[in-house]
Simulated assay, not measured.
Amino acid sequence: METIIFLAINIGVCYLIAKSGEKRKIGFGWSFFISLFLSPIVGGIITLLSSKLETNIL
């Protein structure tokens, strides 16, 4: 039972990190993948180190 709760929390944290990666060069998918398979801490650091996408407002 504790494993399921831990897994749900881990996936939730990975999702939040991936949402922050949407507006970065790394993207949602890679942020989620790295966070899920390495760790959310490593995934968060890599996501934050990725450069932001440029937005052209006309």
Results as ranks from 00 to 15, higher is better:
Ser51Phe: 04
Ser35Val: 11
Lys25Met: 13
Ile57Phe: 13
Ile45Ala: 13
Gly43Tyr: 07
Phe32Leu: 15
Ser31Ala: 12
Leu48Ile: 09
Ser20Ala: 11
Val42Phe: 13
Gly27Ala: 08
Cys14Phe: 01
Phe28Asn: 05
Ser35Gln: 06
Leu38Arg: 03
Gly21Ser: 15
Leu48Thr: 05
Pro40Asn: 09
Val13Phe: 10
Pro40Glu: 06
Ile11Asp: 08
Ser50Ile: 07
Lys19Ile: 12
Lys25Ser: 14
Met1Ile: 08
Ser50Pro: 03
Ala18Thr: 11
Gly12Leu: 11
Thr55Leu: 11
Leu48Lys: 13
Ser51Asn: 06
Leu38Met: 12
Ile17Cys: 06
Thr3Pro: 04
Lys23Trp: 05
Leu48Ala: 07
Ile26Tyr: 05
Arg24Pro: 08
Leu36Ser: 09
Phe37His: 02
Lys19Leu: 15
Leu36Thr: 14
Gly43Ile: 02
Thr3Ser: 12
Thr3Lys: 11
Ser31Thr: 10
Gly29Phe: 15
Thr55Asp: 10
Phe6Cys: 01
Lys23Ser: 14
Leu49Tyr: 12
Leu16Lys: 10
Phe37Thr: 13
Phe37Asn: 07
Ile46Ala: 13
Lys19Asp: 10
Ile57His: 11
Ile34Asp: 04
Gly29Pro: 03
Ser35Met: 00
Phe33Val: 14
Leu16Pro: 00
Leu16Gly: 11
Asn10Ser: 08
Leu7His: 06
Ser51Val: 08
Ile46Thr: 08
Thr47Asp: 01
Phe37Glu: 01
Ile41Lys: 03
Asn56Gln: 05
Tyr15His: 09
Val42Met: 10
Gly44Lys: 04
Phe28Arg: 13
Phe6Lys: 15
Val13Ser: 04
Leu49His: 06
Leu58Gln: 07
Phe33Lys: 01
Met1Tyr: 02
Val13Gly: 00
Leu36Trp: 09
Leu36Lys: 01
Met1Ala: 14
Thr47Cys: 12
Gly12Asn: 08
Met1Gly: 15
Ile17Met: 02
Gly27Ser: 01
Trp30Lys: 10
Ile17Gly: 02
Ser51Asp: 10
Asn10Thr: 06
Asn56Thr: 09
Pro40Ile: 09
Thr3Ile: 12
Phe32Gln: 02
Leu53Ser: 04
Arg24Asn: 09
Ile46Gly: 03
Val42Asp: 02
Tyr15Ser: 06
Lys25Tyr: 14
Leu53Thr: 00
Leu16Cys: 10
Ser50Asp: 03
Ser20Met: 14
Ile9Trp: 09
Gly43Val: 10
Leu38Cys: 15
Ile17Tyr: 00
Ser35Thr: 10
Val13Met: 09
Glu2Val: 10
Tyr15Met: 10
Ser39Phe: 06
Ile34Cys: 01
Leu7Ser: 14
Ser20Phe: 09
Leu38Val: 15
Gly43Pro: 03
Glu54Pro: 01
Gly29Thr: 14
Leu48Gln: 09
Thr55Ile: 14
Thr47Trp: 02
Pro40Cys: 06
Ser31Met: 04
Ser35Asp: 08
Leu16Ala: 13
Met1Asn: 12
Gly43Leu: 05
Ala8Thr: 11
Gly44His: 05
Ile17Val: 15
Ser50Met: 05
Phe33Glu: 02
Leu38Tyr: 11
Asn10Cys: 04
Lys23Ala: 11
Phe33His: 01
Glu22Val: 15
Glu22Pro: 00
Ser31Tyr: 02
Ser35Gly: 15
Ile26Pro: 02
Leu58Ser: 12
Phe28Lys: 13
Val42Cys: 08
Ile34Gly: 01
Lys23Gly: 14
Gly27Met: 07
Gly44Asn: 03
Glu54Ile: 12
Ser31Lys: 02
